[in-house]
Design a protein around this nucleic acid. Structure first.
Length: 220
DNA sequence: AACACGATGGACT
DNA sequence: GTCCATCGTGTTA
């Protein structure tokens, strides 16, 4: 079942907590999201929108439920899920995932221009780390500028579907690679991961499974 | 027109 | 742990 636009028309942190376990689909590839980060409105000094609207971050100021995709370090394409109302610059960065469908294509993309192993030839650790990191997720989904602004809640192209399983226990921690932010935002636990997934980046700075905060999820 | 800098990942000591 | 590839973007001139 596709997530609808209303799902994304909320604070980025709430969306982040609810989107772990959701599925990303593009063609033959299906991924399960295992780790995300919230880049929030109201003065988050790590947010790409902290200096206002620019050509790069325009998608973040657009309608919720669309993709914001940008190039990082000149070579890695990052997928974000736009949140909040249009006009508010906020989004959730997809940092890690597990392959559900399309292992062979994902392996070919991940090992393009390198020696491509088969899944069974990889160690457990290599399998766990296959899509542990935002650049790896972008590679697996063959992201580029073509998918920037793409609506994820409609059929076609890149889609996002609700988790088919009960939502997992979560671990939280500070966001990665934002040392430039003010300490208040640099240290905020706005990174959220499936506490039971082996496919998570920078595990050392994640908490144990947390029961804090009754999250916005039914009668949980 | 020139420049500094990444919401990273892979190779290597 | 260290090093660095690589390029669009935002800033400055």
């Amino acid at each position: 079942m596709r997530l609808d636009q209303a799902f994304f028309r909320r604070d980025a942190l709430d969306v982040a907590r609810d989107v772990v376990g959701a599925l990303l689909l593009r063609g033959p590839v299906t991924l399960r999201i295992t780790e995300v980060e919230a880049y929030r409105a109201n003065g988050d000094t790590a947010n790409h929108c902290r200096f206002g609207l620019t050509a790069r971050n325009a998608a973040m100021f657009g309608p919720p439920g669309h993709a914001y995709i940008y190039l990082c370090y000149g070579m890695h394409w990052m997928l974000n899920l736009v949140t909040d109302e249009a006009g508010v610059g906020a989004a959730v960065l997809v940092r890690s995932a597990e392959v559900v469908e399309g292992h062979d294509i994902v392996l070919a993309r991940r090992f393009a221009s390198r020696e491509a192993p088969t899944l069974s030839a990889m160690t457990r650790r290599q399998q766990d780390e296959l899509l542990a990191g935002p650049g790896k997720v972008g590679q697996a989904l063959d992201l580029g500028t073509a998918m920037n602004h793409h609506p994820l809640y409609r059929r076609g192209g890149l889609e996002i579907h609700a988790s088919p399983a009960p939502l997992p226990p979560l671990a939280v921690g500070p966001r990665v690679g934002i040392d430039y932010a003010d300490p208040e935002h640099r240290d905020a636990p706005w990174r959220v991961a499936d506490a039971n997934s082996p496919s998570v980046s920078a595990r050392k700075t994640l908490s144990p499974p947390t029961r804090l905060k009754p999250l916005a999820r039914g009668a949980g």
